[in-house]
Design a protein around this nucleic acid. Sequence first.
DNA 1: GAGTGGTCTAGACCACTAA
DNA 2: TAGTGGTCTAGACCACTCG
Lengths: 242, 242
Amino acid sequence: MVIERPKPIAEQLVIILREKIRSGEYPAGSRLPSESDLASQFDVSRATIRTALATLEAEHLISRRQGDGTYINKRIMEINTHMGDTWDFKYMIENSGRIARIQPILVELRKANTQEQDALEINRDSLVLSIVRIFLADDQPVIYSENIIPASFCINPGPYNVSQPIRNILMDYCHQEIAYSISDLMATLPPPEVAKALSLDLDKPLLKFFDLFFNNKDQPLVLGNNYYNDKALRLHVVHSWE
Amino acid sequence: MVIERPKPIAEQLVIILREKIRSGEYPAGSRLPSESDLASQFDVSRATIRTALATLEAEHLISRRQGDGTYINKRIMEINTHMGDTWDFKYMIENSGRIARIQPILVELRKANTQEQDALEINRDSLVLSIVRIFLADDQPVIYSENIIPASFCINPGPYNVSQPIRNILMDYCHQEIAYSISDLMATLPPPEVAKALSLDLDKPLLKFFDLFFNNKDQPLVLGNNYYNDKALRLHVVHSWE
DNA sequence: GAGTGGTCTAGACCACTAA
DNA sequence: TAGTGGTCTAGACCACTCG
């Protein structure tokens, strides 16, 4: 394996090592070569190797034990859908091994309601772009999603292609990049339109996320109301205990 | 502020800087001194400062912008309960500004059922310790929790003090440390005993977590079935978008 | 005791942003 | 263009685990 320089070396190492783990070249449960070995093998400094290993450790793909070695965890690879990587439904569906498709339901420009004004820090009577969509996994509807963007952000004129992740919509039409998001997590019964769209019973609970997305200047970009059918698409969370 | 050497310098810096941010010495939205300035101010290398800042960035307390500077985020501090730090209900309740108390309901030794045998990788007819508890926030019951530990792990004889986080129980009685956990997240209607314990209606949905805890050798330690009243204790998740 | 990961330094160069 | 954070190196010493 050759290390190219144009991209950060540590990132390339992450990709290479992750692939070796997933392919089984480094079997689950086995010990990786020592940091010094890897460093000389790839002809980089140990610090660079450690940066790469830190990423893999954050993904819980490996465990590092001082005085012992670096070991490959077997369980994380078995998980398909999990929060943590990116908060991107399309990615999560594809990661579960299914075909993801985004079906637009409604795109409209309208006045913001009080909650939206508050959350998005916009003035009374400001216009917002409301995007309602359904995410399908192998053509089965699994997520009902409404996203609200302040109209003032929308630099590019329409028509908008909303069959893509919200991240791309913001990039293409608002030139804004999401830095982080905060989700408020709830269990709820589906409103009628959601139940209908997801083919669910009105008395079957499902997950709801109230999301706020921010750019790296801490400005709110988008608000989201997302209904997630956890029976159709399992949702996993992985936690470190330092 | 004095830097002591016994603990990792980077960790001390995290604590100091976090405190300066929380106290308002570095106001929200303002720019931190540059990495070089901080390095000479604390008389450490820039690499060490960067390690500390990386931690604060992972907590979303700061944003770093190449060519610009390091800025303090204002929103994260306003969130009380959130997953990510530690998957510890007691900590989460206290972090929301309320008094946390753990009330034992039932502690018993019994045979493992099939699901438990599978998840915990133990043999048929193996014994497990079942711990049922309720978490109270300001004396209001908010979480119903059942934890299953293989009896073979329990080195110390009872009586067990189960009014403490599962992490401590495992440390004290099993000499085992949790390295990471995987949670399966669901919306559900409460079983009768849960509804009763949490004073909930049977038709009001709530969150359920099916948890598995592992040590750093990738062995399953504990299984958890947790019912979380998200109306009484809001649950937030913060995501990075790299 | 040998070998591992954990911490830390000093210095270098690059990529980017703002004034 | 000056100053910022991003990347990378080479080397040092420490703390820990294991045989």
